[in-house]
Nucleic acid binder design. Sequence first.
DNA 1: CTGGCTCCCTGAATGC
DNA 2: TGCATTCAGGGAGCCA
Length: 273
Amino acid sequence: MPELPEVETVARRIEKDVVGKTIVSADVRWARTLATPSVKKFKEQIKGQKIKAVSRRAKYIHILLENYNLLIHLRMSGDLLLRTGKIKPEKHDRLILDLKMPNSGISQLAFNDTRKFGKVWLTNQPEKFLGKLGPEPLEKDFTPQWLYENLRKRKRQIKPLLLDQTFLAGVGNIYADESLHIAKIHPQALSNVVTLKQAEALHEAIVSVLKEGIRRNGASIDWVYRGGEYQNYFRVYDREDEACMVCGTKIKKIIVGQRGTHFCPKCQKVERK
DNA sequence: CTGGCTCCCTGAATGC
DNA sequence: TGCATTCAGGGAGCCA
């Protein structure tokens, strides 16, 4: 499921091929994919807009246009696909943008999303939707000290807190489980009793796991999101009853904050202080 | 402030 | 074999 590394991979993949092109028309194939504005306004506003840049913020893909910002959230099963020429839509295409260069033919940017959880925003106030997000884990302002202080400020189970996008941006279920295992912290440990040493270990684990995910083009789970390799390197995620790579104990799966959670009961003990 | 629950969806897995 | 049911999962919204 697209988390920071998968979204980064998708953004980098399309960037070269769309920057500089002009959106000549939009085919909205599933109206509820548009968070804002209405289908009618979306089509009017996006028509003729030139694509200036593609970047990522948290799990959003940010496509900068001349007068607007196109924000795309892939949620569970979304993907962006680039096609050359006039090709008929594929199953699960929810939005198709026809792109054109001055001296070349049509190409298409398709938002394909099996489960229809994904959302697209067209806005001139991107900060309205991105402003409440926490820091980027791969940027300079995410430091061990910041993590320590902010974990201590809250009193929550640590895993749901890592998944909270207003706390830290971009971490999802897979990378949270992987990070906590590397840092040897129980997913239900309370954030306010984490030690500086643990926070430092967690910081390093989050950064390394996200970088490794990006290096392997993300993780492909089941039939959702294709092309990544990171699923071959999972330590705990999707490894229930398999041996922990550190101590050999069977990995356990429990529900934490309504999310499937994988951890090693020996390496990741609950802290009681 | 926190946590729990529901909703949005489809396709794979499971049940009979 | 085939039909019906169950379930995962990111994030918003609601409630306690």
